[in-house]
């Protein structure tokens, strides 16, 4: 059923993306703030310490489109990246701008659409807050804003890209942990970087979401992680739910047919 599985449209311009190299992240959260400033995203007002290392925004959500995770890990002293048995991992997470984006697939209003840069964007003038995309996203990225009703997530700064500027978070990032650019080129860069880190003995280094054959057809925003994805709160092997949609439609058709047939049987030979 090719019509439900159409991947990327042919874009006018090379597909854009993010390569977030967490081995360069200093956990400064400039990305979080720059994003909020640019997009006028409301701040969290609860102002309570989570106690989860230096992470007080906890997760991606309607009001946090970039989120920096902090993981304090006890590691064996031999680990080359450990100090005194402690390793502090920091990683800035964001919408993956999936090649096969479940959120976009399921959106009934067309509020979500694929831009000419290959990114996935919610149009706030269209979204009716049905919430379908929220349940569809295998990464738990997009979410509904309380009191507003609509859903929000990273737009990869669509308006900035249109203006020929890089996204606000990537621009701010002091150490270029967030790298923005043409996806193909970023993938090459990431491969080289991974090889380099492996050479340096960073055994745990791995690319996440880079592979165009993975469950979502490759992430438009992919990562270099120093540990397993789930350590960072990422699903280790997500799948776009609409992969199975053709099968589901078939089953549903079968069920509908069964229902009609069953009903017909109920009347069959019934006495008046």
């Amino acid at each position: 059923m090719s019509v439900t599985q159409l991947g990327m449209p042919s874009l006018g311009v090379p597909r854009k993306g993010f390569f977030t190299d967490t081995s360069l992240c200093i956990g400064c959260k400039a990305c979080e703030v720059a994003c909020k400033e640019w997009n006028s995203v409301p701040a969290d007002t609860s102002l309570e310490l989570t106690g989860e290392s230096f992470d007080n925004t906890s997760a991606l959500g309607a009001n946090t489109w970039r989120h920096v995770a902090f993981i304090e890990k006890q590691v064996p002293a031999e680990d080359p990246s450990a100090h005194d048995g402690v390793k502090w991992l920091m990683s800035s997470d964001v919408c993956k701008h999936c090649t096969h984006a479940a959120c976009l697939d399921v959106c009934p209003t067309g509020a979500l659409f694929r831009t000419e840069h290959g990114t996935v964007v919610v149009q706030q003038d269209i979204c009716n807050g049905c919430g379908y995309c929220v349940s569809a996203c295998p990464y738990g990225v997009i979410d509904q804003r309380k009191g507003d009703g609509r859903v929000f997530k990273c737009t990869m700064c669509y308006d900035r890209l249109e203006a020929g500027e890089e996204p606000a978070c990537a621009k701010a990032c002091p150490t270029k942990s967030i790298q923005y650019g043409e996806l193909d080129e970023l993938r090459e860069r990431a491969d080289a970087r991974l090889a380099e880190l492996h050479e340096r003995g960073e055994e745990g280094a791995q690319l996440y979401g880079r592979d165009p054959d993975n469950g979502v057809g490759g992430d438009g925003a992919f990562f270099l992680l120093l540990d397993e994805p789930e350590t960072y709160g990422l699903p280790p092997d997500p799948v776009v739910t609409t992969r199975d949609l053709p099968a589901m439609w078939k089953r549903a058709a079968g069920a509908a047919a069964g229902l009609l047939a069953g009903a017909a049987l109920a009347f069959w030979g019934a006495k008046k």
Binding site: I71, G129, S135, Y139, E230, Y232, P235
Partner: peptide
């Protein structure tokens, strides 16, 4: 003994 990020959910709970 699976690993997670402070036991936080990965997915968003349905808004429904």
């Amino acid at each position: 003994d699976f690993t997670s990020y402070y036991g936080r959910p990965i997915l968003k709970e349905p808004t429904w």
